[in-house]
Simulated scan of single mutants.
Amino acid sequence: MDKPKGHAAKPAPEGRRDNKPQFKQKPKANYDGWLWGAHAVEAALKNSARQGLIRLFLSEERTKSAPPALFKRQEIKISTLPMSEISRLVPPDAVHQGMALHAPVLEGESLDDLIERDARNGLHVILMLDQVTDPQNIGAIFRSAAAFGVKGLIMQDRHSPPLQGVLAKTAVGAVDVVPFARVTNLSRALETLSENGYVSIGLAGEGEFNLHELLAQQGWGESLKKLVLVLGAEGEGIRRLVAEHCDHLARIPMPGGFESLNVSHAASISLYESCARR
């Protein structure tokens, strides 16, 4: 017997199983190549190593007050926008101060070029980061490196974020000041540095000597003039193989009894010991 008309189920449209409303997923914002904040943007504009088209976005107030020398590069395209429009270009919580910039991300240089650059004169301190991945920590380390006159910074290629966005804002321009290199293998990089006269010290709680004592023992500033300070990720510290390739392990004494420091704070203390306390 035929079913009564009007009771047959209406076939669902192809690709759908029900009549629930379908919502398109909001595309993820892409902030690759973006910098914001006065210090970060001004340092980027002064850095001749930044190649390719640079798009600079300024508020009306910033357009009036910015030094003309910042805009003499031919590859810069400048746009003046209201503050609210600049805010739409960068992440919602970004403090851009009326300045934002979009440009190719800095790639760094080779380890050989970093060593050659560092071989010119004076004392030479290089920082190496072992799987430090937090952008704010890396930005703060760049800032300290610039403040203490570090000759270069080495990061692992696969485990470090691009030098842009929050990282560059935290560094307040230091990513365009401190030379850096990305390497595939930190242990091999330590071997290369050793062949070029560097002594490497890994910062670790199990170090036999505190950093100040060890630097004095090694004749830092007199017989020793090339130094690599190796810092590991917070919590895990320096990985075993990297630690084995360090010439020495040293600790930062903490008489208060607390077990560890934020890696950016450890970097600042280590740089004070090696660059300023002498």
Rank of each mutant, 00 (worst) to 15 (best):
R278S: 06
R88T: 10
N262R: 12
L214W: 02
M83F: 04
R143T: 10
V95M: 09
I78G: 02
L58P: 03
Y272V: 06
N196Q: 12
E222V: 11
R239V: 05
E259I: 05
M155I: 15
R16P: 00
C246F: 02
K20D: 09
L190Y: 04
K26D: 05
A250R: 01
N19Q: 07
G165F: 04
A174T: 13
Q156P: 04
S268T: 14
G52A: 08
A146M: 09
P161S: 03
K226P: 10
R240Y: 03
F142Q: 09
F23D: 01
M254V: 06
E236T: 10
K46Y: 06
H39N: 14
R143N: 09
Q218M: 07
T63S: 15
G202F: 02
L56D: 06
Q217F: 02
A267L: 05
E14W: 00
E14R: 08
Q156D: 14
A12H: 12
L89T: 04
P162T: 09
L111V: 12
V230S: 03
V263R: 06
V263M: 09
I252N: 01
E42D: 14
G122D: 13
E273V: 13
G122T: 10
I201K: 00
G197C: 04
I86A: 07
E61I: 13
S268R: 01
V242I: 13
S270C: 15
P27Y: 02
E195Y: 02
Y198A: 03
G6N: 11
A49M: 11
G205Q: 09
V172M: 15
V95K: 13
L153P: 01
D112Y: 10
I115V: 15
E244C: 00
A94M: 08
Q131A: 10
G152M: 10
A100L: 08
S79W: 07
M254A: 09
M1I: 06
P253R: 11
F142N: 08
P92S: 13
E234M: 04
A145W: 04
L53S: 10
R158Y: 13
R17L: 11
T170N: 12
A266D: 05
G207W: 03
R188A: 14
T184I: 07
P68A: 15
A40N: 01
Q156T: 12
H102M: 11
E14K: 11
G232K: 02
G205K: 05
A168N: 04
Q97P: 01
V177G: 02
H265F: 07
I54W: 02
L241M: 10
D18N: 15
R16A: 11
I154C: 04
S268E: 03
L56H: 08
R62L: 10
L101K: 09
P82K: 12
N121T: 15
A9D: 06
A216L: 07
S48E: 15
